[in-house]
């Protein structure tokens, strides 16, 4: 061991090579290699009769993306991702503000843990719980029924609620961190110059916390784009994820692969915009 260590000390390149060999082999060969194989499939096609893959390069799958129903599905998914992101931001701001600016340091730490922990709790069970809540004779209709109202039941509103519920902690945490970083002196200066609470919030706090909101939106937006389990549990609406899964399940891997480039492309574009807005520094 000693001699090996001394030998390695004189060869930093070998040392580096040994450190990186495992991770690179795993991530580049297995993972990137798999992705490459998937995307090569997007350029193949499937024989309509035998169902076998035809090894003849084609752009047909990409042309299919522009045909019904896919543009509608894409727009619907984007709309859902936008609404979910907006709702998460609106809900995250007050609680994050309370954590960063009102709560005592002790309460603050407890609350950070209280927001982190449910974020990791079983994803499937959180989705399933909403099926119980939204069921016809479930708790929501029971409680709202007492005041003569009804819950939304299953459908698009349910999808919106479930996504908002699932991704909210991903928005709260960066927004909290962003608010926590704003120096007190800026807020005092605003107050000294006559800015009332609301004015200070709108003109000083909000612009400063925007990159953190964008950072949170990376999660809420891209997680909504790729999910296919949650919508299928509380609605019959087809989103991009469902469309990909349906094609994969039907054995049309080439079309599924081409379709999966849609959320991928959108996420990459979104990341580029987010970087321009300074979101990466706020992560």
């Amino acid at each position: 061991m000693r001699r090996l260590a001394a030998w390695l000390h004189r060869r930093p390149r070998t040392r580096l090579g040994l450190l990186l060999a495992g991770p690179i082999a795993w991530l580049v060969v297995i993972y990137l290699g798999s992705l490459a194989i998937l995307f090569l499939n997007a350029f193949l096609s499937r024989d309509a009769f035998s169902g076998a893959t035809v090894y003849q390069p084609t752009l047909d799958n990409f042309a299919r993306l522009l045909e019904d129903p896919y543009p509608g599905i894409t727009i619907r998914t984007l709309g859902m991702a936008a609404v979910v992101t907006l709702t998460c931001a609106v809900l995250a701001l007050p609680i994050a503000f309370f954590m960063a600016r009102v709560a005592s340091p002790r309460l603050r730490n407890t609350m950070v843990v209280a927001v982190i922990v449910p974020l990791w709790a079983s994803y499937l069970i959180k989705v399933y719980s909403w099926r119980l809540i939204l069921a016809e004779e479930g708790i929501l209709n029971e409680v709202l029924g007492a005041v003569g109202l009804r819950g939304p039941g299953f459908g698009d509103v349910a999808v919106w609620l479930v996504f908002t519920y699932l991704w909210l902690p991903y928005m709260i945490l960066p927004v909290y961190a962003g608010l926590d970083r704003i120096p007190d002196s800026l807020l005092e200066a605003s107050a000294d110059l006559g800015g009332r609470s609301w004015m200070t919030f709108r003109r000083v706090v909000l612009p400063l916390v925007l990159p953190a909101v964008v950072a949170g939106s990376i999660f809420t937006f891209s997680l909504t784009l790729g999910d296919y389990i949650a919508p299928a549990q509380v609605s019959t609406t087809i989103f991009i994820g469902n469309a990909i899964y349906a094609q994969f399940g039907a054995g049309n891997l080439p079309l599924a692969a081409a379709l999966s480039l849609v959320p991928l492309g959108i996420v990459v574009l979104y990341l580029l915009v987010a970087r321009r807005l300074g979101a990466f520094e706020a992560l």
């Binding site: 993972y31 798999s34 992705l35 998937l38 999910d227 899964y245 891997l253 999966s260 996420v267």
Partner: peptide, 11 residues
């Protein structure tokens, strides 16, 4: 960072 469905299909 990529949607799970992409990673899953690729693997």
């Amino acid at each position: 960072a990529l949607p799970g469905i992409v990673t899953g299909m690729a693997l």
